[in-house]
């Protein structure tokens, strides 16, 4: 099982999800993707859209002010 990383803290909607989506496509069953994103719109939307497309959000943690870590598993 592999773990991937992605930093979308500098991106804005919809590129936040576009980049997430491209990474998620590389995942095999059981792989995880750790995403760094800003609190607010990306935190509200990226995990929700990933869930809608069949992925599982396994962790959401505040890592520093205004930045969250979200772990998504296929």
């Amino acid at each position: 099982m592999s773990a991937y990383n992605l930093d979308i803290t500098k991106d804005r909607c919809p590129m936040t999800f576009v980049k997430t989506k491209l990474k998620l496509e590389e995942l095999e069953e059981g792989d995880t993707l750790e995403i760094l994103l800003t609190t607010g719109e990306p935190l509200n939307n990226v995990p929700r859209t990933a869930t809608e497309q069949g992925f599982t959000v396994v962790e959401t943690t505040l890592v520093r002010e205004n930045i969250h870590k979200v772990v998504i598993r296929k």
């Binding site: 919809p14 590129m15 999800f17 576009v18 980049k19 989506k21 491209l22 496509e25 859209t49 497309q53």
Partner: peptide
């Protein structure tokens, strides 16, 4: 792989579950 400008150009396709990067 798609280039950065292709990712942006086709972003509304890539978001779609039925299209995506692949």
């Amino acid at each position: 792989a798609l280039t950065d400008s292709q990712i942006e150009r086709y972003s509304r396709h890539i978001i779609l579950k039925e299209v995506g990067g692949k």
